[in-house]
Design a protein around this nucleic acid. Sequence first.
DNA 1: TCGTTATTGAGACTGATTCTCAATAGAGAC
DNA 2: GTCTCTATTGAGAATCAGTCTCAATAACGA
Lengths: 164, 164
Amino acid sequence: MANQVEREIFESYVRRNGGRVTPERLRLFDEIFSQHGHIDADRLYRAIRQDRKISRATVYRNLELLVDCGLVRRQRLGQRRYLYEHVHPGQAHDHLVCRVCDRVVEFMSPAISALQREIARAHGFDPAEHTLKISGICVGCASETEVAATGPSHRRSALRSTLS
Amino acid sequence: MANQVEREIFESYVRRNGGRVTPERLRLFDEIFSQHGHIDADRLYRAIRQDRKISRATVYRNLELLVDCGLVRRQRLGQRRYLYEHVHPGQAHDHLVCRVCDRVVEFMSPAISALQREIARAHGFDPAEHTLKISGICVGCASETEVAATGPSHRRSALRSTLS
DNA sequence: TCGTTATTGAGACTGATTCTCAATAGAGAC
DNA sequence: GTCTCTATTGAGAATCAGTCTCAATAACGA
Ligand SMILES: [Mn+2]
Ligand SMILES: [Mn+2]
Ligand SMILES: [Zn+2]
Ligand SMILES: [Zn+2]
C-alpha cells in the first residue's frame, strides 16, 4: 500500500505518546492521504461519513494530532476556515492565492526557504513552521476583469457605493 | 500633526469613492496610527470607547476601509483573531511569532521581497498583499524550556497524556 | 436650510472550532 | 480469552471573532 512510511510514522507517534490506534484515526489518515491538494475539516468529515460514522469533534482532534506529528499542514489560505494538506517531507512549498476565484497555486523556492532559515537563526528562533501566502489576482481573473472593465473588482468595497 | 500625509490619503480615498468623512472614521484612524505594533479589533474598540461612543460594527467596517486603501495591514499572526498594524510605505516587513509566548518579532528582507515579486510575476499573478510568518520558539522560551526540561513543550498535546 | 443617502449603533446572527461528559473500546496483564 | 484501566469517541452545547440587519442619525452638495 502507498503511504506505508507515513502510516508507520503516525502509528508509532501515537503509541510513543501513550495513545491508541483507533479505526477513526486510521480512516482520517487514509482520507487525507488519498486526497490531494487542500481540503477543509468539514469536507474530510463528510467524506468519511460516506462509509462510517464519525463525529466532527473526532475529525478536528485527530487533525491536530496529524499536524503535531508533522504529517499534515494546516493553513489559513482563505479567510474563514483552515485548510489541511498532507506533507511530503523535503518538499516544502508555498502558495499564491487568487482573491477573486480563490484558486491556489503552489510554488517551491529553495532560495526563500534558505533565507527564512537564515533569518530565524539570526534572531535565535527555532523555526517550527512557516506560512508564505501571496494573495493577488491570478492571470485568468485579470483578463476577465479587463474584458468586463466593470469598476474596481469583484470585492465589495467597504464604502456603500452609489451603484445599485 | 504627524501622519498628515496618511490622513490626506485616507480622506481623499473616502471622498473619491463617494464616502463621508465621519468623526468615527477619523477617531479610528488616529487610534491605529497612535498605537504602534499589532493590535486587535477589540482593543481598538475599547481604546476608542474611553472617550467616545462607538460600536464594534463601526470599528470592523472602518478597519476594512483602512485596509482597502492600503494604510493598514490585517494579518492572522496568532491562531484566533486578526491583528492590525498601520503601514509605512516602502517598509514592507514580515514576522517571527513565538508559539509559546506569542511574542512577535519583525524583520525586513529585501531579498525575500524581491523573490516573492519574481515568483508572482512568473505565475502571471498580480500580487496585492503577502503574509510571511515563521512560527517557532523564541530564544527566551527556548532557554526556559531547557531549564524546566518538562517534556515536549507548553503546547497541550492532542493525545491525553498520562501525566495528571 | 433642505434633501438625499451613507453611516452609525445595538444587538441578532453566523459558522468554524473547541469543549463537555457519559458511553465505548484499545491494549497490556494475567 | 477475560479483566482493568483509561484514552477516545459521539452528540450536542458552548465559544468567540466577525458579519449582518435595520431604524435612527448626520454628512455634505445643492
Ligand atoms: Mn499546498
Ligand atoms: Mn508588523
Ligand atoms: Zn483568479
Ligand atoms: Zn517565546
